[in-house]
Nucleic acid binder design. Sequence first.
DNA 1: TATGATAATGATAACTATTATCAGTTAGTT
DNA 2: AACTAACTGATAATAGTTATCATTATCATA
Lengths: 147, 147
Amino acid sequence: MNRHRYRKKNGDNFRWTNPRRDLVNIFTKEEHLSADEAYMKVKQKNPEIGVATVYRNLDFLTERGILNRFRFGDVKARYELRDLEKENHHHHLICESCGKIINYSEFVQREKKLINAMEKELSEKHGFQINSHQLHFYGICKDCRDK
Amino acid sequence: MNRHRYRKKNGDNFRWTNPRRDLVNIFTKEEHLSADEAYMKVKQKNPEIGVATVYRNLDFLTERGILNRFRFGDVKARYELRDLEKENHHHHLICESCGKIINYSEFVQREKKLINAMEKELSEKHGFQINSHQLHFYGICKDCRDK
DNA sequence: TATGATAATGATAACTATTATCAGTTAGTT
DNA sequence: AACTAACTGATAATAGTTATCATTATCATA
Ligand SMILES: [Mn+2]
Ligand SMILES: [Mn+2]
Ligand SMILES: [Zn+2]
Ligand SMILES: [Zn+2]
């Protein structure tokens, strides 16, 4: 599991650097980018940046709770800004044909109730402390169906 | 998205070979194996088998609906036999510390209702045809918490 | 039950995503 | 301005997976 280990050991005295700022900026404009896609974007603003820096900081920002990391069946990880408000909490539809990813936030209320009950029971029954959940729907998007 | 393309073009005249039989057998005994883990297991029975064959057939069996493929935050894919009965439908708890994967099937009834409603609305609203869903809970397992 | 078409295999090279290493650079503190 | 640890970029290394290709095995048919 531990393939992401650019972890801080002592304290939290991190530095707010340009690559970090640039990355966060990019994710305010675009969602679900892979490391490579983010790298391309950041490069436009700062051609000097290296891939390793992008990977390191996607990891850094994810561990700091600023980004969410997903793996949608695809090998490569994808990222988005973490929802600040609970109301924005959303999940994903993934097209198995073209790979398109669609956000949806319907049913948040009803879902929340079920998820809360689940988390409670699961943590009691399995002694498992739940930190987050992901709900993915796989299928075929409208565009691909129309073809 | 199309990184898995050992796909048949013409018809469905596939052959029921030893590697395929062996793989299915292994998954009746163990769950959530990665390609490499499955390879090791099959090798015990048939030391001649190659990795490529394992990858090809994990893919083959997944596309034939015999196996489920997952990516639990980890880079590597993991597989299990697809649930034959709806009653066995289950989801997963993933420990972010040790990587342990726990099946759970509580709430299937309540969940089914919500999921059905979701699938209906989502397909109407987004024109998206939903084929399957995955619900993953991430957190810390009992063993890791006790340490 | 032998034959033939072609699906499948195994070895291995290649590729893609990610991580480690390390010398040089910077942010933030004094 | 000087100091120091955090950070960076280049690049090598690794892990997981897929492509290639010559050889073999399956199975429908004769
Ligand atoms: Mn999203
Ligand atoms: Mn399972
Ligand atoms: Zn599509
Ligand atoms: Zn654990």
